[in-house]
Nucleic acid binder design. Structure first.
Length: 155
DNA sequence: GCCAACGTTGGC
DNA sequence: GCCAACGTTGGC
């Protein structure tokens, strides 16, 4: 199975790249969107590479590179009534929501901003730059992944 | 803080 | 099954 490439979003006020640098490993919980869930459940495999994006941030940017270290399993926050992401409709025997584990590979020395991505002709097909895009877990191509790492090295 | 875009819910 | 209302996301 070939390595796949992904982009995941997080608001830094909720969980930032610095939190991941501190934790080294985290479970990517709280995803409550079916399309994003399907990607995590069906397609994310151990060894896949993941770009970490800060949304609702200053600046909005790709800030790190991670790797999948555990494939989809039930998102336990769905069963905790105290949790913000509690979902009473999710049953233990047939989990509605799924999470994966990721580990940090590197925090980028320089964030690659959304503005830079928008003006790069090689990155126009990314769902990230499409209008109204709200997916928090999305596939990207190997070429896009490589191009972003190239941008990181600029300046 | 504003607001456009989108996903979900629920009445019918 | 349609679709209006609502809540959320996320750029600016």
């Amino acid at each position: 199975m070939a390595t796949k490439y992904w982009l995941i979003k997080s608001e830094p006020s909720a969980y930032s790249i610095d939190d991941l640098v501190r934790d080294k490993i985290t479970h990517w919980d709280g995803v409550r969107n079916y399309q994003a869930r399907n990607f995590m459940r069906d397609e994310m495999k151990i060894g896949d590479k993941v770009l970490f994006y800060h949304s609702n941030a200053e600046p909005t940017a790709i800030v790190g590179v991670c790797e999948v270290i555990k494939e989809g399993y039930p998102d336990l926050t769905a069963y905790d009534p105290e949790d913000k992401h509690y979902d009473p409709k999710s049953k233990l025997e047939s989990p509605t929501w799924i999470m994966v584990n990721i580990k940090i590979i590197q925090k980028l020395k320089r964030p690659v901003t959304l503005a830079e991505i928008r003006i790069n002709s090689k990155l126009q097909n990314m769902q990230l730059v499409k209008r109204g895009n709200r997916l928090s877990v999305m596939p990207i191509s190997e070429k896009e992944f490589d191009e972003i790492l190239k941008l990181r090295a600029k300046f």
